[in-house]
Write a protein that binds this DNA or RNA. Structure first.
Length: 151
DNA sequence: GCCAACGTTGGC
DNA sequence: GCCAACGTTGGC
């Protein structure tokens, strides 16, 4: 099993939205590295840290699971969507996504600042300077430690 | 294939 | 709102 961190701006889609929806398509990702993780490395049942970026302060907000195999992001074919990609075709779709299902909300959200100062969490990609990648791999050790702190 | 210009992310 | 750190685009 693999472990991941996925960023979302809470004003756009928060852990509470996911709790309400139970499950969502992780659409609109237009970054190749992030796409490759979803397309090539994610497996149903993989566990996910749900991270609120552009929040005050930014923090891990909850837990989720990968709930589907990768499939083409429908927004890339929607001419009315701001994520429409004219270079993508249904035969050869450029953007793939997976579904994410709700697991749990943090009792205690884990702030980025606390990740950064915790030696047990050193090396987490999200804490690295200039880390903009919206989907990141997380080690099992880090994931379980975050779980212990949040639940 | 290089690289300058430009756009975006996201912490602060 | 600022800006550092990247990613992308497109001319050459």
């Amino acid at each position: 099993m693999n472990y991941w961190l996925m960023k979302s701006e809470p004003s756009c889609y928060s852990i509470d939205d996911l709790k309400k929806d139970k499950k969502t398509h992780w659409d609109s990702i237009r970054n190749y590295q992030a796409r490759n993780f979803m397309r090539d490395d994610m497996k149903v049942g993989d566990r996910v840290l749900f991270y609120h970026s552009n929040a005050n302060p930014p923090h891990v907000a909850g837990f989720a699971k990968v709930a589907s195999k990768p499939y083409p992001d429908p927004t890339q074919f929607d001419k009315k969507s701001e994520y429409f990609d004219p270079k993508s075709t249904t035969e050869n779709p450029r953007w793939m996504l997976v579904d994410i299902s709700y697991t749990k909300k943090c009792k205690e959200p884990l702030n980025l600042a606390d990740i950064k100062i915790n030696p047990k969490l050193s090396g987490m990609v999200v804490a690295q300077r200039g880390s903009r990648l919206s989907i990141q791999p997380v080690s099992q050790k880090h994931f379980e430690y975050v779980e212990k702190m949040c639940l």
